[in-house]
Amino acid sequence: MDNTNRMNFDMNKEKKRFLLFLVVGIVLLFITFCLSLIAGRYKMSLNQLVNAIFTSDASFDTERSVIMLLRLPRSISAILVGAALSVSGLIYQELFQNKLVSPDLLGVSSGAGFGAALAIILGASMLYVGLIAFVFGLLTVALTLGIAKLFSKNTALILLLSGVVVSGFMSSALSMVKFFADQETTLAQITFWLMGSFEYAKMEDLKLLFPLIFIGTTTLVVLRNRINVIALGREDAKASGVSYDVYKYILIVISTLLTAISISFYGVISWIGLVIPHIVRLAVGRQTQFTIPITIVFGGIFMLLADIICRAFTASEIPISAITGLIGTPIFIAILFLKKQVVKLDD
């Protein structure tokens, strides 16, 4: 019995699986990216895309403009935001040892939503709406952490409950702002912002978005082995030689910043932070050494696909959260069902 199992044990099995999914993921990301550049209300063929990018032929100027001014920044933004929100979700789930946690747990989304709505009714420009949303997102998280600190037992559960309370408060404050908003103009704008969109993505955005998300996600990739130990919980992590409390705050700050930056640029985008980590764990297992890089790639693909659907099939743009929710829910149910099957097979 022992010998058979010993012979069957392949310590590199998970790594091989990870490399396979990484290669497949990168290829899929590239294909989706190309698709994203040609999909939209202005119809374009693959041939036109290649000519517009790789030649200076003036007959493709219109295509070139559409790609460079609209679709390229939009597609890159979608990949970055998809990666940022998904990996934040994964980190929160590992940190709080709860698979139902997503980035907005500590109140980032509700805080940012309130901030944006307030800025919109005060007549601020889009730049300030994003900035105020970002500041309120961070302030809300600070409030959540502050309330949790007041309790003598500052456990993960207290932090979760504190997040629920603060989010609830911010949602009520948001309702008040919406109540005072002008139904014809600002209310529609607030509602649209609360459902997220890449419609107004510009090359300018990437100057800030790219370095911040790149630094944040790269740090998480570098720390991937330590995050695995953190996922064991406070005492086990400390006894294994990891400064749990230091890493906990580093991870909360990075994940919150990644989420707040994404929201402040393109509004609230739901579901992705919950669904993608689950898909990834089903594919490559539990180890964060493997799940973090794959989540970044798969998050990008998912967001690109959702954005393509938002703009390619209807005359006017569909808000992105509507699509991520509509795709995310059945996928999530399918994952739960698949997990049940896996357990049955193992039995």
Partner: peptide, 25 residues
Amino acid sequence: IASDFTVFNYLAIGYTNSLKFYEQP
């Protein structure tokens, strides 16, 4: 806790004290 760790991966965490923060076993 963290019950979906495999025994192999859980045991490998024993090496954490000899690894730098960016290193893997």
